[in-house]
Simulated assay, not measured.
Amino acid sequence: MITQTVDAILNRALTGEDISPEEGVVLLHQTEPTLLAAIQETADQLRHRQAGDVVTYVINRNINFSNICEQHCSFCAFRRDAGEDGAYWLDWGQIQEKTTDAVRRGATEICMQGGLNPEAKINGAFLPYYQRLVRTIKDEFGQLHLHAFSPQEVQFIAENDGISYATVIAALQEAGVGSMPGTAAEVLDDQVRRILCPEKTNTVTWLEIVGTAHRLGMPTTSTMLSGHIETPEQQMGHLEKLRSLQKTARDRGYPSFITEFILLPFVGQEAPKPLRRRVGRDQPVLKDALLLTAVARIFLGNWIPNHQPSWVKLGLAGATEALRWGCNDIGGTLMEEHITSMAGAQGGTCMEVETLQEAISSLGRPYQQRDTLYRHLPTPRLAGML
Results as ranks from 00 to 15, higher is better:
Q94L: 04
Y57Q: 12
I169H: 13
C76W: 13
I157Q: 13
Y165K: 06
L90N: 13
I59T: 15
D101Q: 15
K98S: 03
Q131M: 00
E159P: 00
R61Y: 05
Q131R: 12
V154K: 06
R49D: 09
R47W: 07
E109Q: 08
F78P: 01
Y129I: 04
D81W: 10
Q45Y: 08
E140K: 14
Q143N: 12
A102Q: 11
D101H: 15
N160Y: 04
Y130R: 05
I110S: 11
I122A: 03
R49I: 03
A125L: 03
D161A: 02
E84R: 05
A171V: 01
A125G: 02
V103I: 12
A102D: 09
G142H: 14
E70C: 13
T136H: 12
I63Y: 08
S74R: 15
D101S: 15
Q45I: 04
C76T: 14
F141Y: 14
I163F: 12
Q50R: 11
A77C: 01
A158W: 08
N117P: 12
G106C: 01
A120M: 07
A148I: 07
Q143S: 13
R49C: 03
N64S: 14
R80E: 03
R80K: 15
F149E: 00
V134T: 15
T42I: 05
K138E: 01
E159A: 01
Y165R: 07
H147Q: 09
Y165L: 05
L133P: 02
N62A: 08
D44F: 10
